[in-house]
């Protein structure tokens, strides 16, 4: 398949996953703030931190209030990771590969984009319903992709993008709470950890597996639970499968830097123990992971995607595209 197309399908999926994550974060915080209004400010600034947008937010709004954070993470078109921006990027990518994805996928994504645009123009009366619909739109899209698109190369690039984004998100959620896991803070508020699990849609599945909420088990569940679809290990495992399907190499072999980088990271998680991970320090461990994950992303780009058009040619190209009859 075309390199440019692989690139676009990969990013389309990544952005949809990212929009969903933001919706999930915001929704959980909203729920939490209803129960514990006194912890509001800390709660909202933690949310911005989890999305990795601290500085941009502070420059724009200063104090983290509920209204400011909601507006920033949901509708701020100038903020690259807001829900509306993610869906716009996803849709732009989808538009450039419309003939590759199924019409159902395109239509679903287009409708979600229009839905968020409509919501941005109206006062939000039922925030929960809105965030639920963003999450459902993403789930619908993933489902449609699964049942309407051939599970070929393009599909695998899409899955790869989604899973790498999801692994990244899982560690971000944990990182925000990593300071709670130092020995000095032994007793912890269970509701914080429950909220954390809920923002990964993991609370119910965690309960089935471990019952009582215990911080080290929460870390284990989100990092190393093989069967849970939002755990890092699960995401890395499926990513490896997709990358092998794309490269056409058998499992265990590798033909590119992308496969080597991802394979190494997967092996690390495959054989990791929670106790070792915590002994290393959760924050430091996550930091290290995110650097390696970035390197995987770069290697995938170098191996498979087309060289990007130089930024200074872009305006001329756009102008010429418009000139054509």
């Amino acid at each position: 398949m075309l390199s440019r197309v692989a690139d676009a399908v990969f990013w389309m999926s990544r952005y949809i996953e990212r929009a969903e994550s933001v919706a999930r974060f915001v929704d959980v915080s909203l729920q939490l703030s209803l129960d514990r209004p006194e912890a509001d400010a800390a709660q909202w600034s933690a949310l911005v931190a989890a999305a990795g947008d601290d500085e941009a937010f502070r420059a724009l709004h200063g104090e983290a209030t509920r209204e400011a954070v909601l507006a920033f993470l949901t509708f701020d078109a100038a903020h690259p990771s807001s829900i509306v921006s993610c869906l716009r990027h996803a849709r732009e990518n989808a538009r450039s590969v419309r003939e590759i994805i199924s019409s159902e996928m395109w239509e679903e994504l287009n409708k979600s984009y229009l839905m968020v645009g409509d919501a941005a123009r109206a006062p939000m009366d039922e925030p929960h319903a809105f965030y639920a619909s963003v999450k459902r739109a993403s789930a619908t899209f993933v489902g449609l992709m699964h049942i309407t698109m051939t599970h070929g190369e393009a599909w695998h690039f899409g899955r790869l993008g989604r899973l790498l984004e999801r692994a990244d998100t899982a560690t971000r959620i944990l990182d925000v709470k990593s300071f709670l896991l130092t020995p000095a803070t032994a007793t912890q508020d269970e509701s914080q950890w429950a909220a954390l699990l809920r923002s990964a849609s993991a609370l119910e599945m965690y309960r089935k597996r471990h019952g009582a909420i215990e911080p080290s088990r929460v870390v284990d569940f989100l990092m190393l639970e093989r069967e849970f679809p939002r755990s890092v290990l699960h995401c890395l495992g499926k990513s490896v499968q997709s990358l092998h399907a794309i490269a056409g190499t058998p499992f265990g072999a590798s033909s590119s830097e992308a496969e080597r980088a991802l394979g190494r990271l997967h092996a690390q998680f495959e054989y990791e123990r929670t106790s070792d991970l915590l002994a290393y320090g959760l924050h430091a461990y996550i930091d290290d992971f995110q650097q390696k994950l970035n390197a995987v992303g770069v290697a995938i780009g170098d191996t498979f995607f087309a060289p990007a058009i130089a930024a200074d040619v872009q305006p001329l190209a756009e102008q010429q595209q418009q000139q054509q009859q």
Partner: peptide, 25 residues
């Protein structure tokens, strides 16, 4: 196709999809 900024881009992508051929820039 000239690309997504062209006014007829929808048509280009539609025809490529209907014919099952690659849409290239």
């Amino acid at each position: 196709t000239p690309g997504i900024h062209n006014s007829a881009y929808f048509e280009h992508s539609f025809l490529a999809q209907q014919m099952g051929i690659e849409l290239v820039e």
